[in-house]
Design a protein around this nucleic acid. Structure first.
Lengths: 216, 216
DNA sequence: GAGCATACCTACTCGTGCGTAGGGTTACGC
DNA sequence: GCGTAACCCTACGCACGAGTAGGTATGCTC
């Protein structure tokens, strides 16, 4: 029953704030490797170098823990992007910096990205949270496009704009996935490629050239 | 202990092939609603109007069952696309028909799409299967772009082409997700929008206009 | 240095859900 | 009409993992 003879405790006592971050680190790692359901609280606790009840005491149930991961990683990503893309720059410059920051983040936080996009998406309880974040990004991209077009005296229906923005965000996520899976890939180069597809392609399109389905 | 008084069996005896399809239908439905882990074999069996041991007898373990779902839905989708996009058509026509068939399929099989993309992606055991399918699509799209460009006398490095194709496939999946979530959305219209982004945008880009990162 | 909050543990309970044992009934060939 | 194979069931065993009970040690305040 006696836990440990009171001589030299093998573990260090650390302040709550520190342990919480360690736990989140471990949780993100394990969730991203195993997936939400397959991950066990025991493994997470173990990986954090702590016992399970501590995790429950600090971060709550498994679902709450996952949400906390989602929140931390999502906030970090958003901050990385927002910090890079100052709103007073011209649209193409903003887009470029935003993309570079984004791919940089994904390259440096592959685990976080996996949690965010590969896991959260499949599990109902969290899909909403994710969708909201994505909606914000679509809005930002649509805003950029709109701004750039107005500057050239053109105007496009909002719905149309949003769909294009949606497609661009999807393309970006897709390349991010690719990046996360290829350790040797260069974030900067990937960002350049995406910039090509997004800026040159979409701007061209919205400037006037339109494809229409054949009569048949 | 006696199962049922031998008078009128409440269930029909059906040949294996039929029951298997019913089970798969139920499995796709339940997996897409709950996710792989949260789905229970009991619920699937129940939904199929059959008892659990039958599912094990015909389709094997839960993992095997999921793979079977993946296989059926994936094959159906590929066939729908391949059947529409005959290889002797011009590239833009092929792309258009392929996209229309794809979005038509997603619109008609929202459950299947959810299983395929939202679930399979998160769970390690199936991610590979999915990645292979996606790789085939990327290859096809890259082939189309390449063909169209050669016809106009231009040539592009294969790696570059593949990344663009990857982005386009990602954009398409993204719109498919959007379509699956919006019951009121029109597949045909969505296909037209994607066609705009893909054909006009990408072709334009690959024809010469290129964006390059600023010196800073 | 007594009291109290905080950090931390081991060792459970208990539900849930996969997979199976063991057996019953209908159709079909011969 | 009789075996035998194909269908189909109810009712479990059993492992795994979420969450908790109950207790110990350490540092900080006064």
């Amino acid at each position: 029953m006696l836990a440990r003879v009171s001589s030299t405790p093998a573990f260090k006592r650390l302040p709550r704030a520190v342990r919480e971050q360690q736990m989140l680190d471990a949780a993100v790692k394990v969730f991203s490797r195993r997936g939400f359901h397959a991950a066990s609280m025991d493994e997470i606790a173990d990986d954090a170098g702590i016992s399970k009840p501590m995790v429950y005491a600090y971060l709550g149930t498994k679902e709450e823990l996952f949400v906390a991961c989602l929140h931390r990683e999502g906030t970090r990503m958003m901050q990385a992007i927002a910090g890079a893309a100052a709103p007073d720059l011209p649209a193409d410059e903003r887009l470029w910096r935003g993309l570079r920051a984004f791919f940089g983040f994904v390259g440096a936080h592959r685990d976080g990205w996996a949690v965010l996009y590969r896991q959260a998406r499949g599990e109902q309880p969290f899909a909403g949270e994710l969708a909201a974040m994505r909606a914000r990004m679509v809005e930002v991209v649509a805003g950029m496009l709109d701004h750039a077009l107005r500057a050239e005296g053109r105007e496009v229906a909002e719905a149309e704009l949003e769909v294009v923005a949606y497609a661009l965000v999807g393309a970006t996520e897709s390349l991010a996935d690719w990046l996360a899976d290829h350790a040797e890939a260069d974030p900067e180069k990937t960002a350049t490629r995406m910039m090509n597809v997004a800026w040159v392609g979409a701007a061209q399109l919205l400037q006037g050239t339109t494809w229409r389905p054949p009569a048949a």
